[in-house]
């Protein structure tokens, strides 16, 4: 049986296709395909449609083979062909359990949202804390600041690793922080120190949010910010942890969780 999960994020659409195998009475799930797409000018439903078709064709499958499609993410209601939709918390917790059954705390930092999810080891979300109405605790904050420094997000993260300074940022708001970064540039502060200051600031806000659900090992980071090595390092420091586990396809974790939930619901 094949099921699909579609994660309609604020910036990208992610699709994961999963096949269920029965190995001597034990159910196994294998990722058959994954696909990430920038919707560009497409509306929600059309973008989901296109991303789904592209994922299927790259996996050599067609729609008739797919038993169920679950959607998640900020735009999950826009996926008209989805059989059902689940929250980002449920999808994230389920997806993480596939990688790390020992996970207890999930930190999910995407483009416009950051959240902390508590999970029990069976793939269920038991508690969560998020801030969906302020851009300061999410990836777009770092993105705006990297633009001000004229660095790519990747370069920005790598630059911050070269700094051992901690410059506190006063601004708590993305808009104000941009001005603060500009004045740091004017005062000839090295780019790497500014990058670290920004990522430390995001990490401390994300950390404070996660603290509301409690920080228990193992801690797993998912979402696009996993690719930012500087952020991962700042987050570890802020949470005072030796290790934060990183899945190898971080932006697809929620879509994967969605596909797994879709498969389980068929029984």
């Amino acid at each position: 049986m094949i099921t699909a999960g579609i994660d309609m994020g604020s910036r990208t659409v992610k699709v994961v296709l999963v096949e269920e195998e029965n190995a001597g009475g034990k159910l196994n799930y294998v990722v058959k395909g994954k696909h990430l797409m920038f919707p560009g000018d497409l509306d929600g439903d059309a973008a989901a449609d296109k991303a789904f078709d592209e994922a299927l064709s790259s996996a050599g499958l067609d729609r008739a083979k797919v038993s169920a499609v679950f959607a998640t993410g900020a735009g999950r209601k826009m996926v008209n062909f989805a059989t059902d939709s689940v929250t980002e918390m449920s999808a994230g917790a389920k997806g993480v359990s596939w990688f790390f059954p020992t996970a207890r705390t999930i930190v999910d930092v995407g483009a416009e949202e950051g959240r902390g999810i508590k999970t029990d080891g069976t793939g269920k979300a038991t508690d969560f804390a998020g801030n969906e109405k302020c851009a300061a605790g999410a990836g777009s904050f770092a993105e705006a600041m990297s633009r001000a420094l004229q660095l790519s997000l990747k370069e920005f993260g790598d630059a911050s690793l070269r700094s051992d300074k901690s410059i506190p940022m006063n601004a708590q708001c993305t808009v104000f922080a941009e001005s603060e970064v500009v004045s740091l540039i004017h005062s000839s502060t090295p780019k790497e120190d500014i990058a670290k200051a920004v990522l430390d600031a995001v990490a401390s806000r994300v950390c404070a949010m996660v603290r509301r659900v409690g920080i228990d090992n193992d801690v797993v980071l998912i979402g696009g910010m996993v690719h930012n090595a500087g952020f991962v390092s700042s987050l570890k420091a802020a949470m005072d942890l030796q290790e934060v586990k990183l899945p190898d396809m971080p932006e697809f974790v929620s879509a994967l969780g969605c596909a797994l939930l879709a498969a389980e619901r068929q029984h």
Binding site: S10, D41, E112, K133, C134, A135
Partner: peptide, 18 residues
Amino acid sequence: VSSVCVVFAKSEALALLK
């Protein structure tokens, strides 16, 4: 548009123009 965050209001404004 979003009354609580300028960053979100900005993306909403662009979407409305579109």
